[in-house]
Amino acid sequence: MSVLDAVSRRRSHSKVTATAPSHEELLPLVAAAGTVADHAALRPWRLIELRDDARVRLGEAMMVASGLDDESGAKLAGKPLRASLLIAVVAVHQPSFKVETWEQDATASGVAHMLSLLLTEAGWGVMWRTGHLTRTRPVREMHHLAENEELLGWLYVGGIADDAKDGAKRSINPEEFVTVL
């Protein structure tokens, strides 16, 4: 199978089963994802595995950040439990006179996207989730982020359910997105 075929088949899986890759299974995928374009080889990213109680603590931090302590807050707190593995994607801003912060964020995003493709090809369901609580103080503190770090979101990872819809992804007309000068 070609890379074009693999990328064209990528789908987000909003619902996954409780199975997930182990830490050991994840490592070679992270090593491969780490080969993305990276101006000045700063490696301005890191990943945080959230499993078990860490997902509960994230839900609690999200609830605190939202200010909701009712049924809506409880529902919000349950969101990180949708997958047994969450991978937090963190941009680590390195001092550089030639690589802007936005470019470092782009590298971290590239790692996340490449990892999602690799996980998909390894047979896992993946969905990249973000939201308005991603950069709140309680969520930052729960992830133990340093001042030079920004949370870009989480990859929710799990098994693909037998009844998962493998619907056709809406294709684009590339002519609408490519300008020729």
Rank of each mutant, 00 (worst) to 15 (best):
P138N: 12
R129I: 14
T120A: 12
D53Y: 07
V99T: 13
V7M: 07
M127H: 12
N148D: 15
W128P: 02
P80A: 08
G131E: 13
L133F: 13
G67F: 13
R137F: 07
A106Q: 07
H23A: 10
L85N: 02
V3F: 11
D105S: 05
K169S: 13
E24T: 15
L81D: 04
A83V: 12
Q104G: 04
V90R: 00
E25L: 09
L181G: 13
A37Y: 01
K75F: 08
A161H: 14
L50F: 07
R51E: 15
L42E: 02
V99M: 08
D5A: 13
G153I: 05
L85V: 09
R51H: 13
F97A: 10
V99Y: 09
L152Q: 08
A20E: 03
S109P: 01
H39N: 08
H13G: 03
E24I: 11
L4D: 14
V157T: 03
P138Y: 07
V36I: 07
S72C: 04
S109R: 05
P44L: 06
L76D: 09
H23R: 12
V92F: 01
A108V: 11
R137Y: 11
L81G: 06
R137M: 10
R82F: 12
G123T: 12
T130H: 06
Y156K: 01
G110F: 08
L145Q: 09
E150A: 10
D162M: 04
S72R: 14
E121M: 04
L155R: 02
R46H: 13
Y156L: 08
L115D: 00
T107H: 00
G153M: 04
A122H: 04
V126N: 00
R9I: 05
T179G: 10
G78T: 09
T101M: 08
W102D: 14
Q94W: 05
E25C: 06
L117F: 13
L119N: 01
S66M: 10
R9W: 05
T107P: 00
E175N: 13
L119F: 10
V126C: 02
A88Q: 00
V7H: 05
E141M: 09
W124H: 06
G153N: 06
H13T: 06
H93I: 15
K79M: 15
G167L: 07
R135F: 03
E141D: 15
A91K: 03
V30R: 01
N148P: 11
P95M: 07
E175Q: 12
A31C: 04
D105G: 01
M142V: 14
T17N: 05
A106S: 14
E71V: 12
A61W: 00
V36S: 03
L115Y: 03
L29F: 05
L27H: 02
G158W: 06
E141G: 04
S8M: 14
A112Y: 01
V56Y: 06
L81K: 10
K75Y: 09
V56Q: 08
R55S: 04
R57S: 02
T136W: 04
I160Y: 09
S8D: 12
L68C: 11
V30L: 11
S14I: 03
G125H: 01
E25Y: 02
S84F: 09
L50S: 02
D53W: 08
W154H: 13
S84T: 15
S84A: 14
D69Q: 10
T19W: 02
V92P: 01
